[in-house]
């Protein structure tokens, strides 16, 4: 369990790599591949991360809960694309959904750093992210959009299990004096 917790950031990175690739590809294919789409994804993700690391990480709520919110938001993007393809008037809604997705990594980094050095957390997460973008891009070419759904769901279930069973190691809030 300790070893699994050590590599938790790497798995989070893989998940985030898949989700980001999934957002870029699915929105580019079924909304628009203009620069506006890419800017929206990038900026909203970053805004969500800031909100997560500065505000929400200090509050209650397990990591699994924020992970669930992120996955539901990712799912909402997929549903909107199916129901209203190429509807760029929904950009604000996509933006809100991506902010909610971005919250999770922000909360995760804040919660992990009491347990491991920032260097280790960021190093593992970033390498996981690299693996995620490589595997998701190549897998997408061969198997299509289904991998952008199945793999993130499987990884998030694993992460939820890991953080739930090891909940005492990942406190819901930073202990205060």
């Amino acid at each position: 369990m300790r070893i699994n917790r050590l590599f938790l950031p790497a798995w989070v990175g893989v998940l985030l790599g898949f989700i980001q690739t999934g957002l870029f590809l699915q929105l580019a294919f079924t909304l628009s591949s203009s620069i506006t789409t890419y800017l929206m994804i990038t900026l909203c993700w970053l805004v969500g991360s800031v909100f997560g690391v500065l505000v929400l990480a200090q509050r209650g709520g397990s990591l699994a809960r924020y992970l669930l919110i992120a996955m539901l938001a990712y799912g909402a993007c997929g549903v909107m694309l199916v129901l209203q393809p190429f509807e760029t008037r929904l950009l604000p809604l996509y933006g809100v959904a991506i902010i909610l997705i971005g919250v999770y990594p922000g909360v995760f980094f804040q919660r992990m750093t009491p347990l491991s050095s920032a260097r280790t957390v960021f190093f593992l997460e970033n390498n996981g992210f690299i693996v995620g973008i490589i595997v998701s891009t190549i897998a997408f070419m061969f198997f299509g959009q289904v991998v952008l759904w199945i793999v993130p769901v499987v990884i998030s279930l694993y992460l939820a299990f890991m953080t739930k069973t090891d909940a005492r190691s990942l406190p819901a809030h930073r202990p205060s004096l």
């Binding site: 970053l46 991360s49 800031v50 690391v53 200090q58 922000g106 980094f109 750093t113």
Partner: peptide, 11 residues
């Protein structure tokens, strides 16, 4: 803190 520094980098 990780919060303020990470937020600064993202900003």
């Amino acid at each position: 803190t990780i919060g303020e520094l990470y937020a600064a980098e993202i900003a």
